[in-house]
Structures are given as C-alpha cells and as structure tokens.
Amino acid sequence: MVRRFLPLLLLLSFVGIAIWALTAEREEQVRSKLVGQPVPAFALEPAIEGKPGLSSADLAQSEGPRLVNIFASWCLPCKAEAPLLDALAGEGVPIDGIAVRDRPSDILAFLDEHGDPFERLGNDPRSEAMIALGASGVPETFIVDGRGVIRYHHQGPLMPADLPALRAAWEEAR
C-alpha cells in the first residue's frame, strides 16, 4: 500500500527542494575557500610609476591587518565603491590594490577621477594573483591580517551597508 504512494513522496521531495531553491538566499558567486589560510604566493609588478607593486611577502610582514582590493579601471561597480575606499583610506586603513587586466594609463586616469586609496598597487594583467586569491571577478576585497592570513572576503562592490561586517572582521583581524 505504502509502495503505491512512493512516487508521490518523490514528487513532494522534489517540490521541497524546488521551494527551497526559489526562496532561500542563495550565493550568487563562488566564495573563496582561502579564508583562514595564508595568502598564496604571488608577486606583482608596480601597476603605475611611483607606487610599489604588491607581493604576498608584503602582506605577510605587515604591522597589522590590511585591505586588499581587486579592481579594474574598466569595471563599473569599481567606480561605485571608490568613494567608500577613499573614505576608509582617509581613516587610516591601509589598503593595497590589485589592478586586473588593465593598462597603466587607464589606471592613472581612474585614480585621478575616483581618488587613490592605495599604498601599494600591483599589476595583474593575466588575472594570476586574482585567481591565486580565489577571487572570481572585480571588484572583490580581502582583509589580510598582520601574519599574512586571509581573514575576510567580500565579493562585489563595497557599499555602506557592508561596512559593519567589514569593521567587525577588521577588529577580529587586529
């Protein structure tokens, strides 16, 4: 008797999964699995003249936590998050940048227009550092603590609403 209603049970489990998929807050992007791990090795040439490039060694021997921002001059959301990064830099938060698939002249124009929050700025023409960090697009932002361990990963542009979580992670990374 029960067996004859088995197909109905299968249907209901499918419907359950489907309802979950329709209603749950689902990840739209692929999270980096490296949170909690040391920054993988990479060494990037300076992206523009007059500013040092960025390597994992720089991040490992830092005084305290640092923000690492992956961006590009051709990316629209990066323009949207620029004012917030500028404000953070103004507060004294050390920020390093990785410019993905970009040209020095374009980066300079971008920094001129949207402000320059970066202490170091590495050039990543082949997305190697971006992939090494487990980022899947631009912009993305990492918090790396003083020992060079990745503590936080944010995908997409940083918006004011994201600040509390970012600050909490920052305090924890100190």
Partner: peptide
C-alpha cells in the same frame, strides 16, 4: 589548485 580556491564548483 583551482578547487583549493573555488571549491568543487569549479
């Protein structure tokens, strides 16, 4: 190497 970063999704 890629799975380490992006998980089995990749």
């Amino acid at each position: 190497y890629l799975i380490e970063r992006y998980g089995e999704w990749v």
